[in-house]
């Protein structure tokens, strides 16, 4: 642990020195990870390459962890499960129940996507809490300019995937005409058609705002938590290595879980809003689903 703290301190010191020279950095404040450490030990162009592609390395690590766990759990899937299979089944079943609870029985086909989304984000969030590891969800590349703009590549990628997936579901379920009708605010009378020039941009902006909202909510929450931990690690170094960051690590576990959940919840709600609701007898259930979706959106907004 002392090595971890020392490296964190080294990272911050390097960050401070870099800022003093006006140099550009990927993140504003974070603890050092093992790829950066290797890069600094190797040095030269190879070291730079390591540093440059560290996000991909951590992405591969997350994929490997998830792949390994679920491969081990499902390799000999038994009717009477072992501990790992039970744990994985509990997660899978909970996610399935969660998605089906919002989308109804038809939600089962969206569970693999939404469940994977949750597990991927959750693992990425949590892995950053381990010493010498990094959360890709808290990662950003800053674009140079008069106002430096951080681009959180991982959360952007995830939000883009959700955006494209949701639009595809909308077009697939409603048809291209139905989709455009939905985007135009479902005009059925003269007033509706008059409102189309207003409703269409509003819907377009609404749809385009969703990936931005997803991207920055996840990125900012996770990055904020990691900065908090990094600051308290810095304080610990200055206070005879008393681990001040420990309570915040526990807090971060909760935050990581909640943010992964919120991202998944919002994605589920976006899918629910794109699903058709045409049958009269299903109207009650649909309105119930939309009420749930609306309350879920409010809840997610609070987080």
């Amino acid at each position: 642990m002392s090595w971890f703290v020392a490296t964190a301190y080294a990272s911050e010191a390097a960050h401070g020195a870099a800022e003093a020279h006006g140099a550009k950095h990927e993140t504003s404040l974070h603890v050092i990870n093992f790829v950066q450490l290797i890069a600094r030990l190797i040095g030269g162009s190879t070291g730079e390459l390591f540093e440059k592609y560290q996000n991909m390395i951590f992405g591969v690590i997350v994929i490997a962890i998830l792949g390994f766990i679920f491969h081990a759990a499902s390799r000999n899937a038994q009717l009477k499960p072992g501990r790992l299979q039970s744990a994985c089944e509990a997660v899978v079943e909970a996610l399935n129940g969660f998605v089906s609870g919002i989308l109804g029985p038809q939600g089962k086909k969206y569970t693999p996507f939404l469940g994977t989304l949750f597990l991927y984000i959750w693992t990425m969030n949590l892995i950053g809490l381990l010493p010498l590891m990094k959360s890709n969800t808290a990662n950003s590349i800053t674009l140079p300019g008069s106002v430096p703009l951080p681009i959180p590549t991982t959360t952007v990628a995830l939000a883009l995937i959700v955006f494209v997936y949701v639009q595809c579901i909308g077009i697939k379920n409603q048809g291209i005409v139905g989709y455009l009708d939905h985007m135009a605010g479902t005009p059925r009378d003269v007033f509706g058609w008059v409102m189309v020039p207003i409703m269409l941009p509003i819907h377009l902006i609404g749809e385009l705002a969703k990936p931005f909202s997803l991207t920055f909510r996840l990125f900012c929450n996770i990055m904020g938590g990691h900065i908090l931990v990094a600051v308290f690690i810095g304080m610990a170094i200055g206070a005879a290595f008393i681990p001040f960051q420990a309570p915040f690590l526990i807090f971060e576990i909760a935050t990581s879980t909640i943010q992964a959940f919120v991202f998944t919840l919002l994605s589920t709600v976006y899918i629910a809003m794109m699903l058709p609701h045409e049958h009269a007898e299903e109207h009650g259930a649909e309105s119930h689903t939309h009420e749930q979706a609306a309350s879920a959106t409010v809840l997610a907004g609070k987080h």
Binding site: P112, V156, A157, L158
Partner: peptide, 16 residues
């Protein structure tokens, strides 16, 4: 990096 992250997610998606 965004493309690689998308590909990474797709890999996880198909594996899971």
């Amino acid at each position: 990096e965004i493309i690689v992250q998308i590909v990474g997610f797709m890999v996880v998606f198909f594996v899971l």
